[in-house]
């Protein structure tokens, strides 16, 4: 059931990410709906769910863009890995904490993706532009991730699923 619910959100997130145009400002970052699902899995589910979500989310994102297969998976794994490390130390599900976590992890994912695409020679970005874009994506992450967390929690409550805080 947990996997089904996460897959549902992954599909919804991917579709919304494609439908919503990238934000016009601060380097045009995309809205991180898929990343929010991965972070949710990293924060509230067993590790295997997070890994599955990161790999599937990566394939989904890469399929819906021009990125080579596996690049987004690496970025999502890195961001989710950071979230998993933070979860063990101090994390709570308060909106402000989720917001800060979302901002940080989105910036990490953007940075990893920028490095991979730059090394492969697929994008033309200066370090300043990359930094600006990371800042922009952090801002979007700070808004989108808490909203997605709330929605996912609400659905789980409706379905009578208990959160597995492992």
């Amino acid at each position: 059931m947990t996997l089904l619910s996460l897959l549902f959100w992954l599909l919804v997130g991917g579709t919304f990410q494609v439908l919503m145009p990238a934000w016009r400002y601060m380097g045009q970052p995309a809205f991180p709906f898929v990343l929010a699902v991965v972070l949710y899995a990293a924060m509230s589910k067993k590790s295997r769910y997070f890994v599955i979500m990161a790999l599937l989310g990566g394939i989904l994102e890469d399929s819906l863009s021009l990125a080579p297969l596996g690049f987004s998976g690496c970025a999502l794994l890195a961001a989710g890995g950071v979230a998993t490390l933070l979860r063990a130390d101090f994390f709570t599900f308060r909106a402000t904490a989720v917001s800060v976590l979302g901002a940080f992890c989105t910036a990490v994912a953007t940075g990893v993706m920028a490095i991979l695409l730059h090394v492969k020679g697929l994008i033309v970005l200066t370090p300043a532009e990359t930094g600006w874009r990371m800042l922009g994506s952090a801002l979007l992450g700070a808004i989108v991730v808490p909203v997605m967390f709330r929605l996912m929690q609400a659905l789980e409550r409706r379905l009578g699923m208990r959160e597995e805080m492992v």
Binding site: V18, L19, A22, A30, E61, S65
Partner: peptide
């Protein structure tokens, strides 16, 4: 649709 990652300017 549009590029899901925002790294390229594409439409589908």
């Amino acid at each position: 649709g549009r590029d899901s990652t925002g790294w390229w300017q594409t439409v589908r």
